[in-house]
Protein backbone atom coordinates (compact mmCIF):
# COMPACT_ATOMS: atom_id res chain seq x y z
CA UNK A 1 0.00 0.00 0.00
CA UNK A 2 1.38 3.46 -0.85
CA UNK A 3 2.03 5.98 1.90
CA UNK A 4 -0.79 8.30 0.90
CA UNK A 5 -3.45 5.58 1.02
CA UNK A 6 -2.09 4.18 4.25
CA UNK A 7 -1.97 7.54 6.05
CA UNK A 8 -5.50 8.41 4.95
CA UNK A 9 -6.67 4.95 6.09
CA UNK A 10 -4.96 5.41 9.45
CA UNK A 11 -6.68 8.77 9.90
CA UNK A 12 -10.11 7.37 9.05
CA UNK A 13 -9.68 4.50 11.45
CA UNK A 14 -8.34 6.86 14.17
CA UNK A 15 -11.41 9.04 13.81
CA UNK A 16 -13.79 6.08 13.76
CA UNK A 17 -17.32 7.00 12.90
CA UNK A 18 -16.65 10.29 14.61
CA UNK A 19 -19.31 12.89 15.17
CA UNK A 20 -19.77 15.75 12.74
CA UNK A 21 -17.05 18.42 13.00
CA UNK A 22 -17.72 20.82 15.87
CA UNK A 23 -18.88 24.32 14.97
CA UNK A 24 -16.26 27.08 15.15
CA UNK A 25 -17.38 30.00 17.35
CA UNK A 26 -16.12 33.22 15.80
CA UNK A 27 -16.91 35.73 18.50
CA UNK A 28 -13.63 37.58 18.05
CA UNK A 29 -13.49 40.96 16.34
CA UNK A 30 -13.61 40.53 12.57
CA UNK A 31 -12.94 44.21 12.02
CA UNK A 32 -10.62 45.97 14.40
CA UNK A 33 -11.70 49.27 15.93
CA UNK A 34 -9.17 51.96 15.25
CA UNK A 35 -9.75 55.69 15.68
CA UNK A 36 -6.68 56.90 13.80
CA UNK A 37 -5.01 54.18 11.71
CA UNK A 38 -2.25 56.48 10.44
CA UNK A 39 -1.19 57.48 13.92
CA UNK A 40 -1.39 53.90 15.21
CA UNK A 41 0.64 52.52 12.30
CA UNK A 42 3.26 55.21 12.86
CA UNK A 43 3.50 54.39 16.55
CA UNK A 44 3.66 50.62 16.00
CA UNK A 45 6.32 50.89 13.27
CA UNK A 46 8.41 53.08 15.55
CA UNK A 47 8.14 50.37 18.22
CA UNK A 48 9.99 48.05 15.83
CA UNK A 49 12.59 50.78 15.34
CA UNK A 50 11.53 51.40 11.78
CA UNK A 51 11.73 55.05 10.71
CA UNK A 52 8.50 56.68 9.58
CA UNK A 53 8.12 59.87 7.53
CA UNK A 54 4.88 61.57 6.55
CA UNK A 55 4.43 63.61 3.39
CA UNK A 56 1.88 64.85 0.91
CA UNK A 57 1.73 63.48 -2.67
CA UNK A 58 3.64 66.47 -3.99
CA UNK A 59 6.48 65.99 -1.49
CA UNK A 60 7.09 62.29 -2.17
CA UNK A 61 10.05 62.61 -4.56
CA UNK A 62 11.86 65.02 -2.26
CA UNK A 63 11.16 62.89 0.82
CA UNK A 64 12.46 59.76 -0.89
CA UNK A 65 15.53 61.61 -2.07
CA UNK A 66 16.27 62.57 1.53
CA UNK A 67 15.71 59.04 2.84
CA UNK A 68 17.97 57.60 0.12
CA UNK A 69 20.62 60.32 0.26
CA UNK A 70 23.32 57.95 1.54
CA UNK A 71 22.52 55.10 -0.84
CA UNK A 72 24.61 55.17 -4.04
CA UNK A 73 22.82 52.26 -5.78
CA UNK A 74 19.09 51.67 -5.67
CA UNK A 75 17.20 48.59 -6.82
CA UNK A 76 13.57 49.13 -7.84
CA UNK A 77 10.82 47.01 -9.41
CA UNK A 78 10.36 47.52 -13.15
CA UNK A 79 6.99 49.24 -12.64
CA UNK A 80 8.02 51.72 -9.95
CA UNK A 81 6.41 55.09 -10.82
CA UNK A 82 9.06 57.25 -12.46
CA UNK A 83 8.01 60.36 -10.53
CA UNK A 84 9.13 58.72 -7.23
CA UNK A 85 12.72 58.88 -8.44
CA UNK A 86 12.90 62.40 -9.80
CA UNK A 87 14.84 63.64 -6.77
CA UNK A 88 17.18 60.63 -6.41
CA UNK A 89 20.77 61.27 -7.56
CA UNK A 90 22.25 57.74 -7.32
CA UNK A 91 22.32 54.89 -9.79
CA UNK A 92 19.03 53.03 -10.35
CA UNK A 93 18.84 49.33 -11.24
CA UNK A 94 15.39 48.29 -12.49
CA UNK A 95 14.60 44.62 -11.82
CA UNK A 96 13.18 42.98 -14.93
CA UNK A 97 13.91 45.91 -17.23
CA UNK A 98 15.24 44.54 -19.45
CA UNK A 99 16.26 41.38 -17.46
CA UNK A 100 15.88 40.30 -13.84
CA UNK A 101 18.76 41.49 -11.68
CA UNK A 102 21.13 38.71 -10.69
CA UNK A 103 21.62 37.91 -7.02
CA UNK A 104 25.02 39.60 -7.24
CA UNK A 105 23.44 42.74 -8.66
CA UNK A 106 20.85 42.74 -5.89
CA UNK A 107 23.62 42.29 -3.35
CA UNK A 108 25.41 45.20 -4.91
CA UNK A 109 22.46 47.58 -4.41
CA UNK A 110 22.62 49.44 -1.13
CA UNK A 111 18.87 50.05 -0.99
CA UNK A 112 15.57 48.98 -2.49
CA UNK A 113 12.51 51.17 -2.99
CA UNK A 114 8.99 49.71 -3.32
CA UNK A 115 5.34 50.35 -2.66
CA UNK A 116 3.17 47.82 -0.82
CA UNK A 117 -0.20 46.02 -1.04
CA UNK A 118 -1.55 47.01 2.36
CA UNK A 119 -0.38 47.96 5.84
CA UNK A 120 -1.86 46.85 9.16
CA UNK A 121 -2.12 49.56 11.81
CA UNK A 122 -2.63 47.37 14.91
CA UNK A 123 0.49 45.30 14.34
CA UNK A 124 2.67 47.78 12.43
CA UNK A 125 2.90 45.42 9.47
CA UNK A 126 3.49 46.08 5.78
CA UNK A 127 2.38 43.41 3.33
CA UNK A 128 3.90 42.98 -0.13
CA UNK A 129 2.07 40.82 -2.67
CA UNK A 130 4.25 41.24 -5.79
CA UNK A 131 1.64 43.67 -7.10
CA UNK A 132 2.21 47.19 -8.51
CA UNK A 133 5.52 48.84 -7.50
CA UNK A 134 6.57 45.85 -5.37
CA UNK A 135 8.40 43.41 -7.61
CA UNK A 136 9.43 39.88 -6.74
CA UNK A 137 10.29 38.72 -3.23
CA UNK A 138 14.09 38.63 -3.56
CA UNK A 139 14.15 42.31 -4.45
CA UNK A 140 13.18 43.51 -0.96
CA UNK A 141 15.33 40.91 0.75
CA UNK A 142 18.90 41.16 -0.42
CA UNK A 143 19.64 44.94 -0.25
CA UNK A 144 20.37 46.12 3.28
CA UNK A 145 18.03 49.13 3.33
CA UNK A 146 14.33 48.88 2.41
CA UNK A 147 12.36 52.04 1.75
CA UNK A 148 8.63 51.38 1.47
CA UNK A 149 5.97 53.84 0.34
CA UNK A 150 2.57 53.37 1.96
CA UNK A 151 -0.48 55.40 0.87
CA UNK A 152 -2.81 56.10 3.77
CA UNK A 153 -5.68 54.51 1.84
CA UNK A 154 -3.73 51.23 1.91
CA UNK A 155 -3.85 51.06 5.72
CA UNK A 156 -6.27 48.59 7.30
CA UNK A 157 -6.99 48.39 11.01
CA UNK A 158 -6.30 44.78 12.03
CA UNK A 159 -5.13 41.33 10.96
CA UNK A 160 -8.60 40.07 9.91
CA UNK A 161 -9.03 43.10 7.64
CA UNK A 162 -5.66 42.32 6.05
CA UNK A 163 -6.34 38.62 5.50
CA UNK A 164 -9.68 39.48 3.90
CA UNK A 165 -8.00 41.94 1.53
CA UNK A 166 -5.19 39.63 0.35
CA UNK A 167 -5.07 37.05 -2.43
CA UNK A 168 -3.35 33.82 -1.29
CA UNK A 169 -2.45 32.86 -4.86
CA UNK A 170 0.12 35.68 -4.88
CA UNK A 171 3.41 35.29 -2.97
CA UNK A 172 2.94 37.32 0.23
CA UNK A 173 5.56 38.81 2.50
CA UNK A 174 4.46 40.37 5.79
CA UNK A 175 7.09 42.74 7.15
CA UNK A 176 6.98 44.08 10.70
CA UNK A 177 10.09 46.15 11.24
CA UNK A 178 13.65 45.34 10.22
CA UNK A 179 14.96 41.79 10.54
CA UNK A 180 15.89 40.95 14.11
CA UNK A 181 17.17 38.22 16.35
CA UNK A 182 16.93 37.67 20.09
CA UNK A 183 18.89 34.44 20.05
CA UNK A 184 21.83 35.65 22.12
CA UNK A 185 20.76 35.97 25.74
CA UNK A 186 17.48 37.43 24.41
CA UNK A 187 19.21 40.67 23.44
CA UNK A 188 17.38 42.11 20.49
CA UNK A 189 19.72 42.79 17.57
CA UNK A 190 18.19 44.46 14.54
CA UNK A 191 19.40 43.29 11.20
CA UNK A 192 20.56 39.77 10.60
CA UNK A 193 19.83 38.56 7.09
CA UNK A 194 16.97 40.69 5.86
CA UNK A 195 17.33 44.46 5.47
CA UNK A 196 18.81 45.99 8.57
CA UNK A 197 17.02 49.28 8.02
CA UNK A 198 13.36 49.77 7.22
CA UNK A 199 12.14 53.27 6.32
CA UNK A 200 8.46 53.81 5.73
CA UNK A 201 7.14 56.87 3.91
CA UNK A 202 3.45 57.48 4.55
CA UNK A 203 1.77 59.47 1.77
CA UNK A 204 -1.47 61.27 2.56
Amino acid sequence: MDARTEILDRIRSALGNGAAPPPVPRDYLRTAECADPVELLTERLADYRATVRHCGPGELAATLAAVLADDPRLAVPYDLPGEWLTGYRGEVARDGDPAPLTVAELDDASAVLTGCAIAIATTGTIVLDAGPAQGRRALTLVPDHHVCVVRTDQIVAGVPDAVAALDPRRPLTWISGPSATSDIELNRVEGVHGPRRLDVVLVR
Binding site: P168, R170, P171, W174, S176
Partner: peptide, 25 residues
Amino acid sequence: LPRSSTGERMNPYTSMWTGVTSGDG
Protein backbone atom coordinates in the same frame (compact mmCIF):
# COMPACT_ATOMS: atom_id res chain seq x y z
CA LEU B 1 1.03 32.85 17.39
CA PRO B 2 3.38 35.90 17.43
CA ARG B 3 2.04 37.26 20.70
CA SER B 4 2.20 33.84 22.38
CA SER B 5 5.57 32.94 20.97
CA THR B 6 7.98 35.86 20.92
CA GLY B 7 5.71 38.27 22.74
CA GLU B 8 5.49 40.56 19.71
CA ARG B 9 2.48 42.07 18.00
CA MET B 10 3.84 40.50 14.85
CA ASN B 11 7.08 38.72 14.04
CA PRO B 12 9.38 40.59 11.60
CA TYR B 13 8.72 38.35 8.58
CA THR B 14 5.92 36.05 7.50
CA SER B 15 6.15 34.36 4.10
CA MET B 16 3.18 32.78 2.32
CA TRP B 17 3.56 30.93 -0.95
CA THR B 18 1.31 28.78 -3.08
CA GLY B 19 3.09 26.33 -5.33
CA VAL B 20 5.28 27.97 -7.94
CA THR B 21 5.15 31.64 -9.00
CA SER B 22 6.73 32.20 -12.38
CA GLY B 23 9.75 34.49 -12.12
CA ASP B 24 9.54 34.78 -8.33
CA GLY B 25 11.18 32.33 -5.96
